[in-house]
Amino acid sequence: MSGVVLCALDVSQPEHEAPVLRRAAQMAQLDEARLDVMTVLPDYGTSMVGSYFQKDFHAKAEAQTRQALSDLVEKVLGAEANARVRHVVSTGTVYEQVLQVAKVDKATLIVIGSHRPALRDYLLGPNASRVVRHSDCSVFVVRDT
């Protein structure tokens, strides 16, 4: 095994993320690397918004998201592959969490999807472009057509 391939997914858009996951699995297999899949929850707890949620909201959201991530991997790659995948659920800003997990995992490659950009993405920069600009390892961007 020569490293870790980290695949960042948005579980709320499984139809768009399936090709990203398939490509990440393919690249991990080619490199005999471990496949880690991750998704990121928004951090509502540090703002005024967090006070409107019940105390156990985040724990429940994390558990549901972890299950959705596992279900997506199993649906796309199969149960056997899902059992070998490391599932990561982080909380915060997407690009910051992807970069942090990649650094901690010592990832050799990040695979992330990039969907058709809206005008606001050209001005602010989508998560994929921020990951590309700031990553310490190679990044493979799967383009949604």
Rank of each mutant, 00 (worst) to 15 (best):
Q97R: 13
D31F: 07
S114Y: 04
Q26K: 12
Q100F: 04
V89A: 07
S138H: 13
V111F: 04
T93H: 04
R22A: 14
S47T: 14
H58Q: 13
L99M: 06
P126D: 15
K106Y: 05
S138Y: 06
P117T: 03
D121F: 01
H115F: 00
L30D: 15
R23I: 11
S2N: 15
G125S: 06
L124W: 06
V104G: 00
Q97A: 15
G125L: 06
K106R: 13
K75V: 00
S2D: 13
G50P: 05
A83Y: 08
N82R: 11
Y95D: 14
F140I: 00
A83P: 06
V98W: 06
D136F: 10
E62V: 02
L77Y: 10
L119F: 12
H134P: 01
T46Y: 07
C137N: 08
V85E: 09
V40T: 05
E80Q: 13
V139E: 02
D43W: 01
F53Q: 01
K55M: 09
A61V: 00
E15N: 10
D43N: 05
S114A: 15
S129T: 14
V37F: 02
S51N: 10
D121I: 00
M38L: 15
P19D: 04
S12C: 00
G50S: 02
E74D: 10
K75N: 12
Q29H: 13
M27N: 03
A107Y: 11
Y44Q: 02
V73I: 04
K60C: 02
V88G: 03
E80S: 13
R116H: 12
S47D: 09
K60S: 06
S51A: 14
A8L: 09
T93V: 12
V20Y: 04
L41W: 03
S90C: 09
H87M: 11
G92E: 07
R84W: 04
S12Q: 08
V94W: 01
T46L: 11
L35S: 07
T108K: 15
H87D: 05
Q64T: 10
K75M: 07
Y44H: 11
R120I: 12
L69C: 03
A107K: 11
H58S: 07
A33C: 14
R23K: 14
A8G: 08
V20I: 12
Q97H: 04
Y52M: 12
A8V: 01
A107C: 07
V94S: 01
Q29R: 15
P14D: 09
S90L: 00
V5N: 06
V89I: 09
D121N: 13
L21Y: 01
I112M: 08
S138K: 14
A79E: 11
M48P: 04
A68N: 12
D121C: 06
V37N: 02
R116N: 09
L30R: 15
V101P: 03
V49W: 01
Q100H: 14
